[in-house]
């Protein structure tokens, strides 16, 4: 199977288009269900709310697609986001007395966040690739480290953005152009870039080749180590980008920030048709996966469909159904 992966990949574009129906069918079914349970579901405000909310985990899931396609795993994304959010807010609050409550301070804070994402992702990548620690264990470790450092910095409480800065940064989440919110635009841009990089560029082919069979990729002169580290760096930057959107929303980071985002991102990636053990990935599928997860929550909140006690069961069932749907369509 793995030896022919490089060849098969070429055909995957066409086959992917045909077999793509799986996650889209699940998405469509959820939209119909939503419209049936509550007329407000299809209202522009509700659609905008859900899409904007989904942008945060959506951008993270784009990075996750790269890591998983290369045969890796990153469990630390939620904790990383909490840490970046906390330190970004601290940086902005610290700069405030010198630069005032304006865009300079906010932009510097954003720059710090991106740098931190780069570093955190790089750390994960080096631990896994150079350190030879299994990805599950390495990122389980950093998951604990990142969140604990934030909890320590925050003294166990929350870190709040200065109120003046909050009103400056607020439009990043709540604003938009032509009725399309900025977070949604960011998600679109990141996913188009991701899709092109993974499916149309040499880097993407290398990522898939490594996920398929690392040794074969190495013999094919792919710079395996470098590409693998890069996937974790991409993940780190995606987490930082998502955090840039997250922070202006509530203006605070708490030890509960980003809780379970890693599982949401991984679930979305698998729902979207990326192979959990690597070798094949599609970014747009992951974005559809995130939208499916977001819609489930939304529909549950908009209806009395199931008892709140059973929300998790409903969510779990939909995830399994979505994955079953897309596997049927995918000849393997």
């Amino acid at each position: 199977m793995s030896d022919t992966a490089l060849v098969v990949r070429e055909r995957a574009g066409l086959r992917g288009a045909l077999g793509a129906a799986g996650p889209l069918v699940a998405l469509l079914a959820l939209v119909l269900l939503g419209a049936a349970v509550n007329p407000a579901f299809l209202g522009p405000d509700n659609i905008s709310n859900v899409l904007t909310r989904s942008a945060i985990v959506g951008i993270i899931a784009v990075g996750t697609t790269f890591v998983i396609t290369a045969g890796g795993l990153d469990l630390s994304v939620g904790s990383m986001s909490a840490l970046i959010a906390g330190l970004m807010i601290l940086a902005m609050n610290t700069l405030l007395p010198f630069l005032g409550a304006g865009w300079t301070t906010v932009l510097l804070g954003m720059g710090a966040a991106l740098l931190l994402g780069l570093l955190c992702g790089g750390l994960n990548g080096l631990l896994v690739v150079k350190g030879g620690v299994d990805a599950f264990i390495a990122t389980l470790g950093t998951m604990g480290v990142f969140r604990s450092v934030l909890t320590w910095v925050a003294n166990g409480g929350s870190i709040s953005l200065d109120f003046g800065l909050r009103s400056v940064a607020r439009p990043i989440y709540y604003g938009g152009v032509f009725g399309v919110s900025f977070p949604l635009l960011a998600l679109l841009a990141v996913s188009v870039l991701g899709e092109v990089a993974l499916r149309r560029m040499r880097f993407g082919r290398h990522v898939a080749a490594i996920g398929s069979n690392r040794e074969v990729a190495r013999y094919s002169a792919v710079r395996v180590d470098r590409v693998r580290v890069l996937t974790y760096v991409i993940q780190g930057v995606c987490v930082a980008l998502a955090t840039l959107i997250y922070v202006p929303r509530l203006g605070a980071a708490t030890p509960a920030t980003g809780l379970m985002w890693e599982l949401e991102a991984i679930a979305a990636v698998v729902i979207g048709g990326t192979a959990l053990n690597g070798g094949f990935g599609r970014v747009w599928g992951s974005v559809v996966g995130v939208l499916i997860l977001g819609l489930i929550q939304n529909i549950l909140n908009l209806s009395n469909l199931v008892s709140p006690y059973l929300n998790g069961a409903f969510q779990g069932a939909i995830i399994i159904i979505a994955v079953v749907l897309q596997q049927r369509r995918k000849p393997r």
Binding site: N38, A40, G43, R53, T254, A256, N301, L302, S303
Partner: peptide
Amino acid sequence: QYANWNPDKGFQVMQDYLQR
């Protein structure tokens, strides 16, 4: 609905309540 004493969940649940 459960909001888990969490600000993000509180935001999400409230957005949906307001639509509903």
